[in-house]
């Protein structure tokens, strides 16, 4: 197996290298790829949509249809993880671990033992694959999370002018919640951001995207042609700002979808579908 695998790989590699010799040199500005379509995008991005970052314009406008499906792919992954892993039956371990908050002692309660009340302030439940509770980690993360979220919002809103956009911002927002979940625990995170919220918000995010396109269609233009939005936004027909706002609304949809789906996948993967104990 090893030898055949290695041979296949070497043959494939040799073939690929042989055909790669025909490529234009690395960094060649005159190759067909760099001269045929891309100048059109660069030269018209300001004129068409009033967005300096041409990557954003192509992503959400010229090839916005691709991006809609890209967001759908993310949602599909979330749905798939839920569909494959989620278990409703509770398979909690026979012994549970609790921490006595004032002293920091850990209690292990065997099956049949009396469990502390759900809303007890003195005892908190901790995971069986438990990591030592650290004040430093918890407080540092609490500090960082606010900044991560602020930066994420900046990235979403500023995608027109600088690198970034809905996708990157969405992942950042999602990872701030994941960070919270890692530094505290999954149950506490689930109380603040429930599974249902994640699932519904993910669908709503993509719905914002495709809904924007559908509104364009209802306004009589082609699907995703944001120019048709100008009467709704109070702009003159042909004003590039209509496209700019269209792109922005789409980016918000992407950010919502990506954020909640990333969190949803994390919930399912980190607890193996049980949603009782995280990492």
């Amino acid at each position: 197996m090893k030898i055949t695998g290695l041979l296949t790989v070497i043959i494939c590699g040799a073939l690929l290298t042989y055909y790669a010799m025909d490529f234009p040199d690395f960094g060649d500005g005159r190759s067909p790829a760099n001269t045929y379509l891309s100048p059109h995008f660069l030269e018209n991005t300001m004129h068409d949509a009033h967005v300096p970052n041409s990557v954003t314009t192509i992503l959400a406008d010229y090839r916005g249809y691709d991006t809609m499906y890209e967001t759908t792919v993310v949602l599909t992954a979330g749905l798939a993880c839920f569909f494959l892993l989620r278990r409703k039956e509770s398979t909690s371990p026979p012994a549970r671990f609790f921490r006595h908050v004032p002293t920091g002692l850990t209690l292990r309660i065997e099956e049949g033992g009396k469990l502390p009340a759900e809303n007890s302030k003195v005892f908190t439940r901790i995971d069986s694959l438990w990591a030592p509770d650290s004040l430093i980690i918890r407080n540092t993360c609490r500090l960082i999370i606010a900044f991560v979220q602020l930066f994420a919002l900046y990235v979403v809103a500023h995608g027109h002018y600088s690198p970034g956009g809905g996708f990157q911002g969405g992942v950042l927002l999602g990872s701030s919640i994941i960070l919270f979940s890692i530094s505290n625990d999954l149950r506490r995170t689930l109380k603040r951001f429930r599974e249902k919220t994640a699932a519904v918000l993910g669908a709503i995010g993509v719905l914002i995207y495709s809904g924007t396109g559908f509104v364009c269609l209802l306004m009589g233009a082609h699907f995703l042609n944001y120019e048709a939005l100008s009467p709704l936004l109070g702009l003159k027909t042909g004003d590039p700002m209509a496209r700019s706002h269209g792109i922005f609304s789409v980016e918000i949809g992407v950010a919502f979808a990506v954020m909640s789906v990333m969190i949803w996948i994390y919930y399912n993967l980190s607890s193996a579908g049980k949603h009782d104990e995280g990492l």
Binding site: P163, G164, Q168, S175, M262, Y266
Partner: peptide, 21 residues
């Protein structure tokens, strides 16, 4: 830059968390 930003958040961030989980 956009691709790099995405890879930094997705590849180095979230993917790793998924793998570790």
């Amino acid at each position: 830059v956009d691709v790099a930003f995405t890879e930094a958040t997705v590849g180095a961030g979230v993917s790793t968390v998924f793998c570790v989980a």
